[in-house]
Design a protein around this nucleic acid. Structure first.
Lengths: 121, 121
DNA sequence: CATTTATATAACCTTTTAGTTTTATAACTT
DNA sequence: AAGTTATAAAACTAAAAGGTTATATAAATG
């Protein structure tokens, strides 16, 4: 594991669909290991391992409720991903801007065409 | 590699610091493989492999300029990561909101303290 | 056409990842 | 104290990741 920057661990943890599904589930509230394991066609230890990966990345923390170890989502690493994305944000905003402009132009063209057609009929 | 959802490939690609550094470099404009390799203490084939991972994730595309294969950043996968984050965005916004409130309260307390001290002197 | 320059591919090695089954631990229940 | 429930740890396996060196390809240049 040995992750240099926290982002290494965070992105690696998020690269697995099982782990992303677990995070999505935790958005609805705390859940035990068995509850989290239920939707998946894999053994309980496998899920425990996924949870450890998420925990090591700081994406979840675990409490104690009798035998259960309820997991809860932690937001900090996700916030860091969001912050990392900032550098690139202008890129897709520019793209959407260009797309908007293009659509605007198409609409204008269509309008012009209709007007022309109407006159000629 | 074999990535189900595009996010699998994207997050996996972003999990490596070398690859994130390459993307950051490409933010300044197109670059050849050798130019991209230059800052790193690793062989040219190693960098070529990283580029292939980025390319497979759709994070870069490559053109042709004589022998050079200039790489350029592609924004779509990053935009998808941003979109994926939307689900979680409220979480850290709520956290920052709580922090703001707390700081506000602290400031008020401080003000009250000063006022009290002034009256008693 | 031989050489150089830029990049990709092949073959290999080591470490990590993601899963398995089996076993241990921890806490509650009877 | 014995049994049950929830979770973790151990030992193993197969595949993938990330690197290496050596070699091949593609395009320009002398």
């Amino acid at each position: 594991m040995l992750s240099t920057s926290g982002l290494d661990a965070t992105f690696a943890a998020l690269a697995d669909p099982t782990r992303r599904a677990i995070l999505a589930r935790l958005l609805e509230g705390e859940a035990s290991v068995l509850e989290l394991a239920e939707p998946f066609a894999m053994s309980q230890p496998a899920v425990s391992k996924h949870l450890k990966v998420l925990e090591n990345a700081g994406l979840i923390t675990r409490g104690r409720d009798a035998q259960r170890r309820p997991c809860r989502i932690e937001v900090e690493p996700l916030s860091q991903v969001n912050h990392w994305l900032d550098r690139y944000r202008t890129l897709w905003e520019a793209k959407f801007q260009r797309l908007d402009t293009l659509l605007e132009e198409l609409k204008d063209e269509e309008k012009a065409m209709k007007a022309e057609g109407g006159n000629e009929a």
